[in-house]
């Protein structure tokens, strides 16, 4: 009898707890729906970063040269992880509202909806990263060294921060539907305030010239900046490059202390936001079925 009841309790829990299997099924569904009727399928997921790469490389090496040699590598090192964060968060924002018929009628853990958005973006990110690395092997072998390990903590922080933002945005968007539009604008500003198309040292040096070096700390406190800069350090690998015979700092030099320190700050911010996001989501999800 006790066993039968335990099994029943387990089945009840399976309907209210986040299960990896359900998450995988939802991500699989999104992928299938997206690529069902396209012959090129996943190749399309490469189109977006390639287009950005082409445009930004054209602009920042030709129209407005920023003097960074092999700029394409530096750009992609930061852009791919940003793109994961950006698309996961924006997609998650509409995840609960977009699945209204499910939320209003079926018992299941609602939190899998934003998490599935993160998973969906994550699958694309991994594929894009693999293709990127495939290109690096012949064209930029310098990337492959011990510094590449820096990518692990950077990505861990990126995932934590992205999940936190996704929980928060998806829950708030049910209550206030313009969160989605607001976030689209915020993300655009956020993109330019993160050192993706320009080296972070430019910001540091400009602020130092103005005597506002304290502001640089604020700039670095943006978790995405810490993640992007660490990814660039891991893949671009040359903090100091030689331009026209003179050395130039593209990324902060002098060991990994700078990167790890700011990743640590970003990790603390992410965990705090994760707790806030989880709390908010739990608080608001009781009303989801009514608000939709």
């Amino acid at each position: 009898m006790a066993q039968v009841q335990q099994a029943a309790d387990a089945r009840a829990a399976a309907q209210s707890r986040v299960r990896l299997e359900l998450l995988a099924e939802l991500v699989r569904k999104d992928l299938k729906v997206k690529y069902k009727n396209s012959a090129l399928g996943f190749v399309w997921s490469m189109a977006n970063p390639l287009l950005y790469l082409a445009v930004f490389t054209l602009v920042f090496t030709f129209f407005l040269p920023n003097g960074v040699p092999r700029f394409a590598v530096l750009f992609m090192a930061g852009f791919l992880v940003w793109s994961f964060f950006n698309s996961a968060t924006l997609d998650a924002t509409g995840a609960v509202v977009g699945n209204a018929n499910l939320v209003r009628k079926v018992r299941f853990p609602r939190v899998v909806l934003p998490l599935a958005s993160v998973g969906f973006a994550g699958v694309h990110f991994v594929l894009q990263l693999l293709v990127f690395f495939a290109f690096l092997v012949p064209f930029y072998p310098d990337a492959f060294g011990p510094q590449l390990w820096l990518l692990l903590p950077a990505l861990a922080v990126a995932v934590a921060f992205t999940v936190a933002m996704s929980l928060l945005a998806s829950a708030l968007n049910v209550r206030y539907r313009d969160v989605q539009h607001l976030l689209e604008i915020v993300m655009l500003a956020w993109f330019w305030l993160t050192p993706i198309v320009y080296p972070v040292t430019v910001v540091r040096d400009r602020l130092a010239e103005e005597g506002l070096l304290w502001l640089f700390k604020l700039y670095m406190a943006n978790p995405m900046t810490a993640v992007v800069v660490a990814s660039q350090r891991a893949i671009y690998n040359h903090p100091v490059v030689t331009v026209d015979g003179a050395p130039r700092q593209v990324l902060p030099a002098g060991g990994y202390g700078f990167y790890l320190q700011w990743l640590g700050v970003a990790a603390v911010v992410s965990v705090a936001l994760l707790l806030i996001g989880r709390w908010t989501f739990r608080r608001l999800q009781a009303d989801f079925a009514e608000e939709l």
């Binding site: 089945r11 399976a14 309907q15 299997e21 359900l22 099924e25 939802l26 569904k29 079926v106 299941f108």
Partner: peptide, 8 residues
């Protein structure tokens, strides 16, 4: 498969 996964 999707529906069954949602049902636990």
């Amino acid at each position: 498969y999707l529906n069954a996964a949602i049902l636990g």
